[in-house]
Design a protein around this nucleic acid. Structure first.
Lengths: 254, 254
DNA sequence: GCAAAAGTGTTGTTTTTACACCCATGT
DNA sequence: ACATGGGTGTAAAAACAACACTTTTGC
């Protein structure tokens, strides 16, 4: 996780209030949520990572679960806090619970640097089990913002990741695998693509996510055979060639 | 879950020691593991359920996770405690974490009936998040044993389930879906089938799990095309017909 | 020889793949 | 007109489905 520093806290509050927040029993202890948010833009697949200034490790945007909060809701909340995106398709894919995944417990350093004192046996320093969620979005729609706690948000190409906290690299790999296996569902449900899109745009997404090339015509046939696309008007973008049709995902039917 | 009453406790110990066990902080609080154990026997797919005598609800065999225990190991331990099976393929498939899933908290009744006193705000009475694991085994190999805590073990057909505790019926449905999607992997990895088996036995498993009929010859072709089966000697079982070949899953390759 | 169950073959259909060709568009 | 990129057609290959036929086994 590493998100505790970014809960729905009024950023004007000082460290004391943050400490209070952690001290309270509002969270489900020993459990967290981590979001693997894949961003797609100009044929590059990236993943959203965070970094606190006083730490050399990057980590996934994650957070704790409130005692009175549905697990899924917690994931949505975290996603919102990071990307300010709402109503996005976010899917649980795996829960990571090995003992040693939090061995190198970054929280200690982090809290120490912020002069926050917690009892040594506080649950935050112990083993953590995290539930992984993933999402596929258009990263040009997201404003990554350095927030009140001096963190940095950045997109990284999935095959060129920086040093990561905990087992987050493993989580990303698992998340990517999930996206690839479920790309059809993901695409229809996510709002990665605009309302209307061309066949080429759709193909670009498939090729980038699956890291695989397809033939133009065969791809079209295959994807149209699914019967989930509706053909709309043509798109005239001023280029000197035949205008492509626009498509959109069918409302529901089938 | 509902498993706390069946941890690795010496059954000669009395309720006091049980209470002590629950009182200690040995467990990861608010978290449990539930196993959906599908049994296959004589072309019927069943699921293993438990019932405590002083309760009218059935539940999945589940348990808590020790603080120093890997999540996966916890699942294996629970499976062992229930079925005395080891080295079985057991796979995590989903984590259930909605607030209301433990609304009808069975623990209260259960503990009350056993005269075990716990503080009202004990974590065991509050919300629970559970990690679902599933497995596919030959249920004729399992000895279901009523254990020290007076519970009953029984197999139920998946489409004829008794009243269940918590959201366990939902968990079973999700587990079944997972098994169906991953039947190939499951079968190779599980030891549902004996070392050597006939094509008909294999087909029976597929048909029962997927609830779908196949043609004998086409099934054989398809499954052999996977290239994961090795043909062995014939099986002479004394019946008045051509002896079928025995097969086994290939050691590894491909 | 016969019934029963397993193995193999064959044919037609559907789906996938690769290649070719035609069509629209702005300069 | 022409280069560019999108749409459509088609033939070969592969995969799948349905059916028929042959083989083996114990009685």
């Amino acid at each position: 996780m590493l998100i505790l520093l970014d809960m729905k806290v009024d950023s004007s509050k000082n460290k004391q209030s943050l400490q209070e927040l952690i001290d309270t029993r509002d969270f489900v202890q020993h459990l967290s949520v981590d979001c693997v948010i894949f961003g797609f833009h100009e044929n590059i697949l990236k993943v959203l990572l965070l970094k606190y200034h006083d730490l050399d490790l990057w980590s996934l945007p994650g957070g704790f679960i409130f005692n009175d909060e549905n697990l899924d809701d917690a994931a949505f909340r975290v996603l919102y806090e990071r990307t300010h995106l709402e109503d996005i398709f976010l899917e649980q894919f795996h829960t990571f619970g090995s003992i040693d995944r939090t061995e190198n417990n970054v929280h200690q350093i982090l809290l120490k640097n912020k002069n926050i004192e917690l009892p040594k046996d506080h649950w935050i320093f112990q083993r953590f089990i995290t539930v992984g969620y993933c999402s596929l979005i258009d990263f040009s729609l997201v404003d990554t913002f350095p927030d009140a706690f001096n963190e940095t948000c950045a997109w990284f190409e999935v095959d060129d990741l920086p040093p990561m906290a905990f087992d987050h690299e493993i989580i990303i790999t698992a998340g990517l695998e999930h996206i690839r296996k479920n790309i059809d569902t993901q695409l229809v449900a996510s709002n990665l693509l605009p309302e209307k899109f061309t066949m080429k745009e759709l193909q670009n997404v498939y090729e980038t996510v699956l890291d695989e090339k397809f033939r133009r015509n065969n791809f079209q046939r295959k994807v149209l055979a699914e019967n989930s696309l509706e053909r709309l008007e043509k798109l005239f973008d001023g280029s000197a060639n035949k205008a492509p049709y626009l498509y959109r995902f069918m409302p529901k039917s089938k």
